[in-house]
Design a protein around this nucleic acid. Structure first.
Length: 783
RNA sequence: UGCCCCCUGGUGUAAAGGCAGCACAGCGGUCUUUGGAACCGUUAGUGGAGGUUCGAAUCCUCCGGGGGCAACCA
């Protein structure tokens, strides 16, 4: 992955690339922090692969850290399965996983520090009291009567909590942040609670346990994590994360250390159509016997996928192709299937297996004769070597689906009187259909063409169909498990009622009595194959044995014939309508308004008066008057800028449209320049001294370091060039350098105007008059 | 209901204010001893309305839609 260029990188990798470029970190450290209370699923794979991938690509480190701060739900059994899955995926986390529980001592010490700093307090309210005092989304919270406890009392109580003097729930430790915050999570979050519970790792050493919002940032800081990646729903938690980290830094510095400064970034978790990932619901499937266990090949768990025959590489490629963004979606299951096929195509040797055997007697093949045909394991386009001898005899099995007594149009396999090729063997013709008394087809009597040994047709005749077969005498019976999607609807959890109502009754079809070529008998458990024309399979690691082979279908082959047949079938129409991405089209879309309505903004009388003056006396549009008078700081800035003398409209544009872009995270109050400078900048644009493009560069510099606009224009060399005589040569040069594009433009691709203007602007160092350039380009190109 | 995040073809995504591109799916074709694979071609998109700008998917505003937050879970 090219970190030198950020183009094409997902937004998180772009941030990492930028941090690396800026020298913010020497090495990138990421982590995957599962709670050991369940199995990993395919969505976790995305998170693991993202964090691990970034570390690997940048030569950094990746930690697997168990976030085991809740003794009541966690178990060492999950530690094992999660560790196995992460290793299987190929995410290298060093020798051993890490455990949050190992940091309990440091977390406790830091908590005492917070107490001593007056940043945390022991609240002895009941949980209902705390919840009630927290307020609601529309009302601020209120302090409980313990919020202003003296530091010494807090410290004493906290130490006694830790010493085990109190029962569960008697007290909690809370961070003292802001009870009135619009962000509910900042309303004095709980950071420690009392739980006299046995912890799978620390035993009974602790009876107080830290909560997520406190524990997680501390864990990250202790490990020196640089980029802490998590899913979107933790967005609101980032404010607490940063609060904790900020104080952690003070704490560590106070001890003479140099603290790490991790940052949290959120991305959309990966969800897949036709699967569920909820721990609770998955457990229902397991407990209720709907599946055989957490590693049932139909489960979206990594254990299940693995048993189904999916490789880690397929998963890696899949998630790589999916990318990373901030939009929650459910991914088309077909994309996963593609990635699996794409991977297995070059990985799985081809073998012959007949799922539903139909006996074929080759009447002109000598009774008792056997011969061995050489059959390659790989098709011509897979660059791998190897073949095996395939025994052929007078009686073979073919799949019942490959014979049609009354062939439909376009069917080119076997039917009465027709020819088909037995893969790697001979061309046969069906002479006679043998039926039982009920009319069931029992056997086909065919003749073979000895000249076609190996499958070729020396006479050049066309044999369109080629089918798989197995010698009856040599083939070995086996069980084949055909797995399909577990649910019949793309989003089972979103459906009304019980998600189990949407279980696919055909998600597992067990085929007994299939017959496979003998060569596979002693292959290792878990071996993967393509059963030619059928699909990708692997032998089941748990239940397959040489004398009782069991194969799991990983994925079917893409099947153009089946698709065409389905399409031709009576009125089957387009496939089940997909749920629109978002029911966005409120089709009776109402009221296009010419002017956006001013929202209800509570304004002080003073600001209200200003709004009226901006709209009236200054003649600004209502929307701009509204925007300028919402906050005092903005209004003050505007007024000061106005005093310089530039037109109100121009000044308003800079305050409303240009400043926010450059402002970044800074608040208007904290800008290193005042309204006067902004007004002067606007004036410089008005009198043509600098172009808007150039002025934006000046503004960016002003936001960063302050300064006088006029001086900056000079020092940055941004005096606008509006002389056609000076610009024309550059325009001509750009046009001459891109003759093909010029032709395209003349042919009607007018979108290229922006390209040409952009090129000229770049070559002129950003100080050409863009309107003039645009005009020049259009003149030259006959626009 | 307050705050926060998000919205690009059917699907997943790219484009740091300057050519809307890639992949899957679809459709059509070539090739083929797998109705597989590969290859070629092709359909289709910036939620809406305003604004800023020479130029907007990108910046501003409003509207619409999706998601998150009022656990002593993570």
């Amino acid at each position: 992955m090219a970190y030198a260029e950020r183009e094409g990188l997902d937004f998180i990798r772009a941030i990492v690339a930028e941090d690396l470029r800026a020298g913010k970190y020497e090495t990138i450290v990421t982590r995957f922090p599962p709670e050991p209370n369940g199995y990993l699923h395919i969505g976790h794979a995305k998170a693991i692969l993202l964090s691990y991938g970034i570390a690997a690509e940048t030569g950094g480190r990746f930690n697997l850290r168990f976030d085991d701060t809740n003794p009541e739900t966690e178990d060492v059994h999950y530690v094992q399965s999660i560790t196995d899955s992460v290793r299987w995926l190929g995410a290298d986390f060093g020798d051993e996983p890490l455990f949050a529980a190992d940091y309990f001592g440091q977390m406790y010490d830091f908590a005492e520090y917070l107490v001593r700093q007056g940043l945390a307090y022991v609240d002895s309210s009941t949980d209902e009291e705390i919840r009630e005092a927290r307020g609601t989304v529309t009302e601020p919270g209120r302090p409980t009567r313990y919020r202003d406890r003296p530091v010494e009392e807090n410290l004493d109580l906290f130490r006694r909590m830790r010493a085990g003097e109190f029962p569960d729930g008697a007290h909690v430790l809370r961070a003292k942040i802001d009870l009135a915050s619009k962000n509910m999570l900042l309303r004095d979050p709980l950071i420690y609670r009392i739980r006299h519970a046995h912890h799978y790792r620390t035993g009974d050493a602790w009876c107080i346990y830290p909560l997520y919002d406190y524990a997680h940032p501390v864990e990250d800081a202790i490990e020196g994590i640089t980029h802490s990646l998590c899913s979107l729903e933790f967005d609101n938690n980032r404010a607490v994360y940063d609060w904790v980290i900020d104080h952690w830094q003070d704490y560590v510095r106070g001890q003479g250390g140099t603290p790490a400064r991790p940052h949290q970034y959120e991305f959309a978790r990966g969800e897949l159509e036709y699967t569920i990932t909820s721990k609770r619901k998955s457990l229902q499937l397991v407990k209720g016997g709907y599946v055989s266990g957490w590693d049932d090949p139909r489960m979206a768990t990594l254990a299940g996928l693995r048993r189904r025959g999916v490789t880690p590489e397929a998963l890696r490629n899949f998630w790589d192709r999916m990318g990373v963004a901030k939009f929650n979606s459910r991914i088309d299951i077909g994309k996963l299937e593609f990635a699996i096929r794409d991977d297995l195509n070059t990985r799985a040797p081809r073998v012959l297996c007949v799922l539903r055997p139909l006996k074929v007697t080759i009447t002109n093949y000598p009774e008792g004769q056997t011969e061995e045909l050489d059959a390659p394991f790989w098709p011509h386009d897979v660059p791998k070597e190897g073949s095996r001898p395939l025994p052929f005899s007078r009686t073979v099995y073919i799949d019942r689906d490959d014979f049609m007594e009354m062939p439909s149009k376009g069917f080119h396999r076997l039917s009465p009187g027709a020819e088909v090729r037995l893969r790697y063997a001979y061309v046969i013709r069906c002479d006679h259909v043998v039926k039982d008394d009920d009319g069931q087809i029992m056997e086909l009597r065919c003749s073979y063409d000895p000249a076609t040994r190996g499958g070729g047709t020396p006479d050049g005749r066309q044999v369109k169909g080629t089918i798989q077969w197995v010698s009856a005498e040599h083939g070995i019976p086996c069980e084949v498990r055909l797995y399909d999607r577990l649910f019949t609807v793309p989003d089972p959890e979103a459906e009304e009622g019980d998600f189990k109502d949407h279980l696919n009754p055909d998600s597992l079809v067990v085929v007994q009595g299939a017959v496979i070529e003998p060569g596979v008998r002693d292959d290792a458990p878990g071996s993967r194959y393509q059963f030619e024309r059928v699909g990708y399979f692997c032998s089941d690691v748990v239940e397959s044995r040489p004398d009782a082979l069991v194969f799991n279908r990983t994925v079917t082959l893409r099947d153009a014939w089946a698709r065409a047949a389905e399409k031709g079938a009576a009125g089957s129409g387009p496939k089940p309508e997909k749920k629109p991405k978002a029911e966005r089209a409120a089709s009776e879309a109402p009221k296009p308004r010419s002017k956006a309505p001013a929202p209800d903004v509570q304004r002080s009388p003073e600001l209200e008066a200003r709004r009226a003056r901006y709209a009236g006396e200054l003649g600004l549009p209502a929307e701009e008057a509204d925007l300028l008078s919402r906050e005092l700081a903005t209004s003050e800035l505007f007024e000061a800028a106005l005093a310089v003398g530039a037109p109100a409209k121009a000044v308003a544009n800079w305050v409303i449209h240009e400043l926010p872009r450059e402002q970044g995270g800074r608040t208007t109050e904290n800008l290193p320049f005042s309204g006067r400078e902004l007004g002067e900048l606007a004036a410089l644009v008005e009198d043509g001294t600098v172009s808007v493009t150039g002025a934006r560069q000046v503004l960016a510099e002003m936001v960063k370091n302050g300064g006088e606009p006029r001086d900056l224009v000079a020092s940055l060399g941004l005096q606008q060039v509006s002389d056609p005589g000076a610009l024309a040569p550059i325009v001509d040069q750009v046009l001459a350098a891109n003759p093909a594009k010029a032709d395209e433009y003349r042919a009607g691709k007018t979108g290229l105007l922006g390209f040409f203007v952009g090129q000229v602007m770049r070559q002129s160092g950003g100080n050409a008059n863009p309107a003039l350039v645009s005009q020049l380009v259009q003149e030259r190109l006959g626009g």
